[in-house]
Design a protein around this nucleic acid. Structure first.
Lengths: 339, 339
DNA sequence: ACTGGCACTCCGCGCGCGAGAGTGCCAGGA
DNA sequence: TCCTGGCACTCTCGCGCGCGGAGTGCCAGT
């Protein structure tokens, strides 16, 4: 149905349209890309591409514009992820190497990503549940109040205040500290329930009721309500690309303010080996139907710490942005693995 | 120079312009506000107001528009802060009463403020340095690594990893915990240097070098680099008001992404008794020259925990927004004082 | 000191027109 | 069969024009 030349024409249309923002016509196309055929032939191919739904006209006598389906084909088959320029590599290096702690890493990455891609950038903090416990501290604030401080292998520090149904002595807390510490150290939070399951049986009977009680609360707060955090940057870049203003930009800004939405965007991404692209209508989130989202997980294969990516107009430089997202994701992954 | 009627005319112009977004002419003005004089008289007054710089024309034959100076006069002398409607009161109540911890309070307040005012809302977390220490925990992670966990009276929990130039024993840490805990409990971080100043002399000689060393690092990380946090919401509201698009909105979005800028905006506000307004060119921040900022401190008189406010077009409902900002600030202040 | 009247200015809008870009289709050629 | 050049057609965009309307400034009158 679509021979090689037609695909080539589609690629040319996407590339031209992305770089010029203007519908591209057959003549200009035949000239700029040396296709070796006449504009008339290109027109025929265009008609075919349009029949198949890969491109459209804004109006009768305007050039062609790719549809979401067209971009999809382009991304899947016609483009290769663009490697970074040396300047970009240097930028990543110098931007991230000065980071002192996790917060700093995330903040710098998100700004870097926004700057590199000139899009809105989103970076998820390493997911608590997928990180491993480096240290778990239990602080005895009051008889029935504990402060849990969790430090993960990615350097994330999270604290929770616990109200217990029972009062504890300092000795109780010391035992708890020892027991939880040894059981959980090195294991991931998702595995915590399993790691703790036989605890009540193994513990000395005296503290058994206390232990189960605390355990319940701990599991609830750490595992069932894992707090996901997300950093955002570069919203000003929206004004760069979007054309017809208030209408297009508002729903996007609104969507980006919803934590839930961002989590949905990045939460699914747990594959740190490939870049994912959602184009226009493919997005489940209402407000982002006019945008494309490029995401990737970061961290070790098979168990990414979290995800990061960019949000921009469907008319974006996919090859470039995919390269940039991939590069930053890899770099952040290494940085955190080494931490 | 400006008699009462002229002031009345200015007020009418501001009110009409704010609500209609359109330059207001003498005829419409004389009709809508029962000034008891003819349009011609109003025109004379307008000419006077224009001479004084309170209003301008976009062009020869358009209505009048207030200048920054005009808004300033309006805010200072012509408007009274609008009390909230019952519906708004209820909204604040129901929005904030469910908050479980500080993070929740801040997140809810900022959204609430954005929703009430239909502007961009900004809420500063209770400033560390101005809060009092409720609990200071020192966790011994490794011989020369400590984790400091600070809980303030406003419920803010902050942690810092410390790398020390010396190695400590568990006993050392226990002493430190005891000493710092008793010295700092209840005092504000700004007073910490004073509270600790005589510490080396008072301490047993054996741990004196360790103590001073730790003290230096503690003071550095907690007092000299107090981490200020800020929450932002409602950026989508920018699209609601701003008229000429990419140009106006971009610098504002850019400015709002800079922590530093936001801190400058709120950092100076430590007065929880009055609402502050910065209008247009009065703003020191470049990107916000086209906007007005309404802020107020929250917390106890004389020692606010932090500031909050909204950013919007100079053409905003000052009376209303000032009322809303004040109400939320008071409510948040009470909420945290009671915590 | 206020008012009504009047001339003037300038914006915004609708209209028509022409240029230009791009298309679709067709008939002819490899 | 596939490609090409040619041609008529369509539609947008930019421009100039004229007009109505809103608003002003000024002046003379009360």
């Amino acid at each position: 149905m679509l021979d090689d030349r037609k695909l080539e024409v589609l690629r040319a249309i996407v590339e031209d349209f992305v770089s010029t923002t203007e519908p591209v016509g057959s003549k200009a196309l035949a000239e700029r890309h040396c296709l070796g055929v006449s504009p008339a032939t290109v027109r025929n191919d265009m008609a075919a591409l349009e029949d198949e739904g890969y491109i459209t006209h804004p109006h009768t006598s305007a050039g062609r514009v790719p549809t979401d389906k067209g971009y999809r084909l382009f991304v899947d088959q016609l483009s290769t992820v663009k490697p970074l320029s040396p300047a970009e590599r240097r930028a990543i290096q110098s931007f991230l190497e000065g980071a002192v702690d996790l917060d700093d890493v995330v903040r710098r990455s998100v700004r870097l990503l926004a700057q590199l891609t000139r899009q809105v950038a989103v970076v998820q903090y390493p997911s608590l549940s997928r990180s491993a416990v480096r240290h778990l501290e239990i602080v005895h604030l009051a008889p029935s109040r504990l402060l849990l401080v969790l430090i993960t292998d990615t350097g994330r520090v999270e604290q929770r205040l616990l109200e217990l149904p029972v009062a504890l002595s300092d000795d109780d807390v010391a035992v708890l500290r020892q027991v939880f510490g040894s059981r959980l150290h090195g294991s991931r939070l998702v595995d915590a329930p399993a790691a703790l399951s036989d605890l009540p049986d193994a513990a000395p009977p005296a503290i058994r009721p206390v232990l189960t009680s605390v355990m319940t609360v701990v599991l609830e707060t750490l595992v069932d309500q894992p707090e996901e955090r997300i950093a955002l940057a570069g919203t000003a870049n929206l004004t760069r690309h979007v054309l017809d203003f208030p209408q297009t930009i508002r729903p996007v800004l609104e969507a980006l303010e919803e934590q839930v939405v961002l989590l949905k965007l990045l939460g699914e991404v747990n594959d740190p080996t490939t870049v994912h692209v959602k184009i226009g209508e493919e997005n489940k989130v209402e407000g982002l139907r006019s945008t494309s989202v490029v995401t990737m997980g970061y961290g070790p294969d098979g168990g990414a710490y979290g995800g990061l990516g960019v949000v921009g107009p469907t008319r974006m430089d996919y090859a470039g942005n995919m390269g940039q997202v991939r590069a930053v994701a890899r770099y952040v992954g290494e940085l955190l693995a080494g931490a």
